[in-house]
Design a protein around this nucleic acid. Structure first.
Lengths: 125, 125
DNA sequence: CTGCACCTTCCTACAATAGGAAGGTCAACA
DNA sequence: TGTTGACCTTCCTATTGTAGGAAGGTGCAG
């Protein structure tokens, strides 16, 4: 993955030791940790790239960082709302299903119906 | 996408008209709607495939359908918990950031720190 | 010396979807 | 009648990140 990050330009090319191995010092490790942390917080690699740039630019206004973070939060919140609606729908369906030996099943009956649940675009939230 | 579903065996090969075009009757359209609906509810193509099989098997016990649905619900709920934790963390970070011309930013300061937020595996929920 | 654990590059696959390129088909319209 | 335009067809590539195999090099410990 680190090699991939390097390849797409998210990370600068690492320094090499005499044997060709990548050489990571404290500074480089800090960058890698930064990337992992931002990834853990759900930022896309593109957003991580932007955050790295902001991180490296010691004089940028904090407004820019905050804006990026809030855009991401809004995105996560939208996805969470969609997810919540889906869960609600599914729970209702499951609730009405006997779940025993009988073959009639309101879950499948409902899935036949072509209506949409909530939002349209993102299928897998 | 339909062509892809056909290719991976999710859907049976569609009947063809004289000119080679795929021919969909009411039954086939119902299957397509079933797939779209299950996709909208966040089931993976593999799960959709299983649901289709259950749908086609008129004599299967509803228990099996319910089990599949509940497994999926549990999965969605897990992902939602992770998402909620991430959002909470991000909101706290954003809250302490001035968001103005000043360059000091607690968001970036925090991102340097290598601790993990909650779960480990799924990065992009 | 040998084995083993690492590293290197290159390439492939995965989940799903989107869309371009090149070509065929058909109905409508002047 | 001819042509335009909206479809369809297949084939191939890109996308977003991650995972891992294959083949080969490096270096340490026994």
């Amino acid at each position: 993955m680190i090699r991939y990050y390097e390849e797409i330009g998210l990370l600068p090319s690492a320094a090499r030791r005499a044997n060709g191995y990548r050489d990571y010092g404290d500074q480089e490790v800090a960058v890698l940790q930064f990337v992992r942390r931002t990834r853990d917080l759900g930022f896309s690699l593109e957003e991580v790239s932007a955050l790295l740039a902001l991180w490296n630019d010691k004089k940028r206004p904090s407004r820019e960082v905050k804006r990026l973070a809030e855009t991401h939060i809004a995105d996560l919140e939208r996805r969470m709302r969609e997810m919540r609606a889906v869960i609600k729908t599914l729970r209702q369906l499951a609730q009405h299903c006997h779940g025993d030996e009988r073959s009639d099943c309101p879950i499948l009956d409902d899935l036949e119906k072509p209506r949409a649940p909530s939002a349209g675009k993102p299928r897998r939230a």
